[in-house]
C-alpha cells in the first residue's frame, strides 16, 4: 500500500466516509470531521505512519492538503 493510500484510508476509516470524498474534507465544515473525529483521525495517522503528532500540528491539521504538509515534518511523503 502506498503512503497516499494509507493516508486516504486513515481519513476514510476514522471519519467513516468514502475514500473518494476524503480530499474535500475540512475540519469543522464536514459533518464527520468534528473534534472527536479529529482525535480518531490523528490516532489513525499515528498508527498508519508510526509517528507521534505534536499538539501544534494536531491543531493545524485542518484539511486533507494541510495534513500532507504536516506529515512531511515527520518524514512522511504522501
Amino acid at each position: 500500500m502506498t503512503n497516499l493510500e494509507k493516508y486516504i484510508n486513515a481519513f476514510a476509516e476514522s471519519l467513516e466516509v468514502a475514500p473518494e470524498a476524503v480530499p474535500a474534507l475540512k475540519y469543522g465544515e464536514s459533518e464527520q470531521w468534528d473534534s472527536v473525529g479529529h482525535m480518531t483521525l490523528i490516532a489513525a495517522l499515528e498508527d498508519a505512519f508510526d509517528i507521534m503528532v505534536d499538539m501544534d500540528d494536531i491543531i493545524d491539521l485542518s484539511s486533507f492538503e494541510k495534513g500532507k504538509e504536516i506529515l512531511r515534518k515527520y518524514d512522511v511523503e504522501i
Binding site: 482525535m39 480518531t40 490516532a43 499515528e46 498508527d47 507521534m52 499538539m55
Partner: peptide, 10 residues
C-alpha cells in the same frame, strides 16, 4: 491523557 486516549481511540 491526550496521548493515551489517542491510543485507546484506535
Amino acid at each position: 491523557s491526550r496521548l493515551a486516549t489517542r491510543l485507546m481511540a484506535r
